[in-house]
Amino acid sequence: MADLSIERLSLSFGGLAALSDVDIAVPAGEIRGIIGPNGAGKTTLLNVISGLVRPTEGEIRLDGQPLTRLKASEVAARGVGRTFQTSLLFKGMTVLENVMAGMHQGLRTSVLAAAVGLPGVLREERRARERAREALAFVGMLSFAERDGASLSFGQQRLVEIARSLVAEPKVLLLDEPAVGLSPPRVAELDELLRRIRDKRGITIIMVEHVIRLVMGVCDRITVLNSGRKIADGTPDVILADPFVKEAYLGKSSDADRA
């Protein structure tokens, strides 16, 4: 279990502020939702956390250790996993192979081990394959292990991507709109999967999501961004009742509510 803290985080492109002065503290074992209207800076925030974009100011810490100046692969190696809005499965590779490609910590060891001896390498690689299969079973996709990744439905690809990020054994998992395009029963399954990831694997989850039913149901706390600023932070009930959130998120209907 690990906590993630974001302190006074700002990012501007030229004069345009994409994120300004964002403070978020996610305690270990929490499922945190990040919501906000389009262009609020949610995906940008995930990109900054995972090291794809360098912030202009501020600090991000995982268990107190700064992540801010690290490269994306180094952030991943410290234990921050990630899935993306668009599918990033590798074409021409099976589902199982795709998941194995996510075991990035294995690269150095397997090269070194290859120099030492083949039997040991194969044993270790067999174990890696087992772990990949376990991860697929965990997300309920084991029966698709030998299928071509590209032949899966959008929602299935999502699950495979989650499995791929799980095999890297992250401490914190960043999910960018995992429920987009899922039917309501699938959303319920995702809700249950997210809880299992937290409870069984001890992974802290930070999730950007538009599907309000999922966010309100599964998240312990929710942070609301609007125009790159944090405008609210609290439990789902508090967020639902927050007038600023209603105004930012629901726009005009909030006027009707107030009237």
């Binding site: 794809l52 994306a72 692969s73 996993g81 590779m93 795709n98 194995m100 490609a101 996510g102 690269l107």
Partner: peptide
């Protein structure tokens, strides 16, 4: 697998943390 993944889509491989 990582080599194969990088050959297929280096950008995605980078994003995935390879």
């Amino acid at each position: 697998k990582m080599m194969q993944a990088t050959a297929e889509n280096a950008h995605a491989a980078y994003l995935v943390g390879i």
